[in-house]
Design a protein around this nucleic acid. Structure first.
Lengths: 209, 209
DNA sequence: TAGATTGTTAATCGATTAACAATC
DNA sequence: TAGATTGTTAATCGATTAACAATC
């Protein structure tokens, strides 16, 4: 199986959409219908589903229950993922609550901070520890994904610590470009860059149509 | 000028990196040096800079001051952008403080919420109004970009309201796929999908190396 | 000068889409 | 059956990279 990040992202969106989807006229959906709901082409939907071995019915389309189940088999880790939020400032607390609202296989097991005020103060039921204890808690709690919501200054040092402690995936909300070994999967979320991108394209509207 | 979203994103990162950059051995930087700092190739850096008409020096590289200035001329709107945050929950407040910490041409001029508790309670100096007043405030304050941090339920209705009020760019933090006219530039930030992407690729490490 | 770097075209790579046979 | 849809290969499109001449 050889799925690109973009395909994985679309599969995640298909599943989430259909989990909330009140069956229109049964438990099946056509590729062009799913495509329209997400502004994609029906070919792309069929191709994505083909790649994960899902087969449809020419009369009824794709079985929604089966679709959700096979996407889960493809992208989920059976035992779920244990997540740590590093940096329990506004952004860290917001992300914590956001993730916990979505009942998925993503379990937030710990927060970390340097501020004594935040430490041992639970956020949405998640305990917060001092960053100096990252190594032992990451190992003890089998954290495999960390969300980085620290200050820019601390970002690279904390990243090194996380990676050395065994974290294998990182969601980086800081605006710092992180240096990580290739075995670690890094996803950047650069808010300022995104705003500047939006700013540019509303200044040059002809480009985006 | 015909710049892709990816080029704009890289330009934004070049600038931010170099603004904080303490000159190594002068006020110039080589393309391969800048490339290494951001995990890119030097060809890509040179090509990006070529596209915005920036010319380097074969002995010294690119003048950092000039680079920052020309990137600004390319991507910034001279008068800046007026931004509204819609949904002043944890995420909205976090994003507000985050953007305001970065001194840029992005001015947050208003927040909106439905919760009477949050309304007329300033966040980091930004006033918060009721969503029913979106239309008049968006026009009065000339808001051109909105950050959507509402609940999933409200997302599409609020978006319609924003677009009808004249907003031309949207940064969407909800997990809902939004339907917007093509003249509106939309950028999605789907946290759950990103986590699932990370989860998949740490399960299949051979793919990401 | 020799060596390193820039600037730019052509080739390559990866992802999307067009086309169409197979199927219900 | 006719019509619509699926499944899949081939063509296309867009972005990155290789190659190399020009320049300091």
């Amino acid at each position: 199986m050889d799925l690109s990040p973009r395909t994985i992202e679309r599969l995640s969106k298909y599943r989430r959409l259909l989990e909330k989807y009140k069956k229109p006229d049964g438990d099946y959906i056509f590729s062009h219908h799913l495509a329209r709901l997400l502004d994609l082409t029906s070919v792309q939907v069929r191709r994505d589903l083909m790649l994960i071995g899902l087969t449809g019915n020419q009369r009824k389309g794709y079985n929604i229950r089966e679709l959700i189940q096979i996407i889960g088999k493809t992208i989920d880790e059976e035992q779920g993922h244990n997540i740590a939020i590093v940096g329990m400032g506004n952004l860290g607390r917001a992300v914590t609550r956001f993730i916990r609202k979505n009942k998925t296989k993503m379990n937030i097991v710990a927060g970390f901070d340097i501020d004594p005020v935040k430490i041992s103060e639970e956020v949405d039921g998640v305990p917060c520890y001092h960053v100096s204890t990252i190594r032992s808690y990451i190992k003890k709690l089998s954290v495999d994904i960390a969300v980085l919501t620290t200050s820019a200054d601390a970002a690279q040092d904390i990243t090194d610590l996380l990676v050395n402690s065994g974290v294998r995936g990182l969601l980086n909300f800081t605006s710092v470009h992180l240096d990580v070994p290739s075995r670690v999967y890094l996803k950047d979320y650069d808010i300022m860059t995104s705003l500047e991108e939006i700013g540019f394209f509303i200044k040059h509207p002809e480009k985006s149509i």
